[in-house]
Design a protein around this nucleic acid. Sequence first.
DNA 1: AATTTAATGCACCTTAGTTGCAATAACAAA
DNA 2: TTTGTTATTGCAACTAAGGTGCATTAAATT
Lengths: 126, 126
Amino acid sequence: MGVKRKTKSVKKLLKIFGQTNSAISAVKLAEDLHQEMNKTTVYRILERLEDEGTLHSFIGKDGLKWYANNEKDSAPYHSFAHPHFQCKSCGKTECLTMDIDIPPVPKYKIDSIKLLFIGECDDCAS
Amino acid sequence: MGVKRKTKSVKKLLKIFGQTNSAISAVKLAEDLHQEMNKTTVYRILERLEDEGTLHSFIGKDGLKWYANNEKDSAPYHSFAHPHFQCKSCGKTECLTMDIDIPPVPKYKIDSIKLLFIGECDDCAS
DNA sequence: AATTTAATGCACCTTAGTTGCAATAACAAA
DNA sequence: TTTGTTATTGCAACTAAGGTGCATTAAATT
């Protein structure tokens, strides 16, 4: 560790993420770039760019790691949703007094988040 | 495939999940049970129990597969919501490839979680 | 008890991601 | 521009999660 160097490989990755707000899996990147750089390099640069705050990552539904641009204007970096609870039996709906932390959403410009918990209220459960 | 058999191994897994509402990773189960049964057996039974609706699974933040009791009356120890995105202009809706970690909700029995991101899709934004 | 076939164990495989180390290439300084 | 320093890379080998093919075992049925 010391001074970070902006190598060709780093620039290449930055260019790719600079051109899209879509999330891209590490596997896909390593595949696409394998003529230009080693997969190890891809993984290491992704880790570095995430550490530096340029990218963020998440685990997709199949267990693969995905990366996406972390620019402030591309997606809300952090938002909180106020969940509502609705009883499936009587339909009673109420606002819960908790905030759910919603991580950055790649690719889309989000205006609002609807978060609904469906279950059974105390009255109906007894 | 044919008639499902309730073997010792299946009973053992059912007993474990019958005693807790916590989620358990497949890795942990395979480790804990490795004197009693092969890891392949563990994975196969977990898959079967999920297919049958007894368990449900999700991918944890480190990419490991977790399983938990699917009984309706059990409070979710941890749940993950699969968000959908809906365009406010054209109505196009799609499944996002990320899981949102929903912390345990006190007081309520939650059956399912609906998480909807509302915004504007690429087509409508341009 | 004999028969059928689902479930299991085992060995081996696949794939994502990581690590150690020698070779290479940024970058700074001369 | 050349030289020296060291961050970065490529490579090969590794780890760990999870899956597969097949011969063997053991539920369930007769």
